[in-house]
Computed example of a mutant assay.
Amino acid sequence: MKSVELFVGAGGLGIGVSQAGFTPAAVMDWDRWACDTLRENKERGLDLVRDWPLHECDVREFDFGVVEGEIDLVTGGPPCQPFSMGGRHRAFLDSRDMFPQAVRAVRELRPRAFIFENVKGLTRSSFANYLEYIRLQLTYPEVTAKKDEEWLVHLARLEDYHTRGRYKGLRYKVMLRVLNAANFGVPQRRERVFLVGFRSDTSVEWHFPAPTHSKEALLWEQWREETYWDLHRVAKKDRPDGGAAKARAMKLERKPNGLRWRTVRDAISDLPDPELAPGSARKFHDHRFQPGARSYPGHTGSPLDEPAKTLKAGVHGVPGGENMLRRPDGSIRYFTVRESARLQTFPDDMTFHGSWTETMRQLGNAVPCQLGRIVAEEVKEKLLRA
């Protein structure tokens, strides 16, 4: 099955889509550093990206007519700064809003399905009308805005088409949900909104994948069975006191179904601490100590025995305090690039191009590969049946 990836960045979603079995006919981004990361890994022969037809370009200038053959899936994460909790929340007033290009790709490529993702901030009540506007544009991608037509007027026109129910043109059945990556085995609490659509003629019935991992299962293994600590060979004297987490675990009446959340310790315990053992750390690519971490209210780092807090791209230079590890003794340090890649479930043999700040920006903007794969696998299964 063939796919096209927009706004590929460092490739988190794209790698997940490739892992699900799609073959990209085109991938694109205008960020030179992200494209350098992909080019470097292509040259190194990294299997997942080796054959990607990469285009470093402005998607607004890309001619989708050069993409040959029928496209089964279009994917991408349109730049999220207009909707990010850390941004200025300008949405449709922000020139960085690339959702119109996502709609154009669907209109011109007519894929059987699409997957678009964005930050949870897109679901804020202040963006409710604009989110509905995005959803209806993706539902009726050929009902385009007229020259100088304001978006609210275009939205009203789309609503008319939707309520009439007699539209015969290109149409998609669009579903939307916020997914927490930790609930799908990613060692990071990262919430992203996914918009998934199937072309109406596919007659697909689809729902988002059910969570496979839970916090309750983690608490049970940590404080009721204590198997978590045994797995990591943490002596009783070195275990945290548990506090509220232990109290919550003791209130659980039975062992939860499913798997437990994966923690920072699960993700990086086999890597030497780059601050305490720099010589050993140098044996691992992109695993170097970065000085300067400091804790302040609201930015206290990620505890070792929980999923990491959301990695951030850092809109003001060096990423914010959440891109830190908080050790059990309370000391802190920045996550290395390799550790951050682990938290985003990138393959270990992938390298990242640029300075620490630049590579952390790429990682902070990425979709966890594993979450992308799980969603794409569900879409692929339905397309195969159809």
Rank of each mutant, 00 (worst) to 15 (best):
V234N: 05
G169S: 00
A244C: 00
W223K: 05
R164A: 05
R199C: 10
V193P: 14
L231N: 12
D238E: 14
V204Q: 04
A156Q: 11
L218N: 10
P211Y: 12
A217V: 11
W206F: 06
L195H: 09
A182I: 10
R166Q: 14
K173G: 08
D160Q: 13
P211M: 09
T202N: 00
E225T: 15
G185Y: 06
S214R: 01
F208H: 01
E226Y: 13
R177A: 11
R233E: 15
A245K: 01
V186P: 04
M175V: 00
D230N: 10
A181N: 02
K237I: 14
R190P: 12
D230Y: 07
R171C: 13
H162D: 15
G185N: 02
E226A: 13
W220R: 12
T163D: 05
V174D: 07
L218D: 10
Y161N: 02
Y172G: 04
G243A: 06
L158Y: 04
R192C: 03
E159N: 09
A235W: 04
L218S: 10
A182Y: 12
L170A: 06
K173D: 14
G243D: 08
R192K: 03
N183C: 08
V196K: 00
G165C: 05
R177W: 00
A181E: 05
A245Y: 09
H207C: 03
R177I: 00
A182K: 06
A235Y: 04
L231E: 15
E225R: 10
F208Y: 08
T212A: 00
V193T: 15
A210L: 11
V178N: 07
L231D: 14
R189N: 15
Q222H: 03
D230M: 10
P240V: 08
D160Y: 09
E221F: 00
E205P: 03
V193S: 14
R177C: 01
S200A: 14
D238G: 07
Y172S: 01
H207I: 02
E221H: 04
E216F: 00
H213F: 08
R233N: 15
R239A: 08
T227E: 13
H162I: 04
F194W: 11
N180D: 15
W223F: 15
E226M: 13
A245N: 11
W223V: 09
R190L: 10
P187K: 02
A217L: 08
W223L: 03
Y228D: 07
Y228E: 02
G169H: 01
A245S: 12
T163S: 10
V186C: 04
Y228Q: 02
K236N: 06
K236C: 02
R189E: 15
A245I: 00
K173S: 12
W229P: 11
H162G: 09
A217R: 15
D238M: 09
W220T: 14
S203A: 10
A244R: 09
K168T: 14
Y167S: 03
E225L: 08
R164N: 11
E225V: 05
W220A: 14
D241S: 10
R224Y: 02
